[in-house]
């Protein structure tokens, strides 16, 4: 395959989630960056310019809400964020949209749904 379709940052404190999501994305032709906590995620997002960020909410060092806020405050708000989380409460969901998060997908997720969301956001940015 030639050039990648886009660069996606996958952030989750569970390495196996990062691995499975990464596998899916790579199989669909995306370049994948990974981070295991919020601090790492913020730094990678700042320096490596991903097209889309797939972000967990519940993480020990800097949760997803905080990462989303930090990125927006630092002027990186253009990078669309997909929350991929085991938090299913309506409050989390509504908070995410107030924060300007583009998609909210709950675990366990359907790979088709995640890929469709990534694709849609890639198109929106193009």
């Amino acid at each position: 395959m030639g050039k990648e379709r886009g660069r996606i940052l996958v952030v989750d404190d569970e390495p196996e989630i990062v691995k499975t999501v990464g596998l899916r994305l790579k199989a669909s032709g995306y370049e994948v960056l990974t981070a295991g906590d919020g601090i790492q995620a913020t730094s990678i997002a700042m320096h490596d310019h991903p097209d889309v960020i797939i972000l967990d909410i519940g993480m020990p060092a800097g949760d997803g809400h905080l990462v989303a806020k930090r990125l927006r405050d630092s002027g990186k708000s253009m990078i669309p964020i997909i929350f991929l989380t085991a938090h299913t409460s309506k409050e989390d969901y509504e908070k995410a949209f107030e924060e300007g998060v583009a998609k909210y997908i709950t675990k366990p997720f359907r790979p088709e749904e995640l890929l469709a969301a990534v694709e849609e956001l890639m198109e929106r940015c193009a």
Binding site: L23, A86, P108, P111
Partner: peptide, 25 residues
Amino acid sequence: STASHELRTPLTIIREFISIMRDGL
């Protein structure tokens, strides 16, 4: 609520690895 949250993560990993195998990846 905690149990449901804690169950979701391993279930996601199991489901995803099965799904990756099933799709021939």
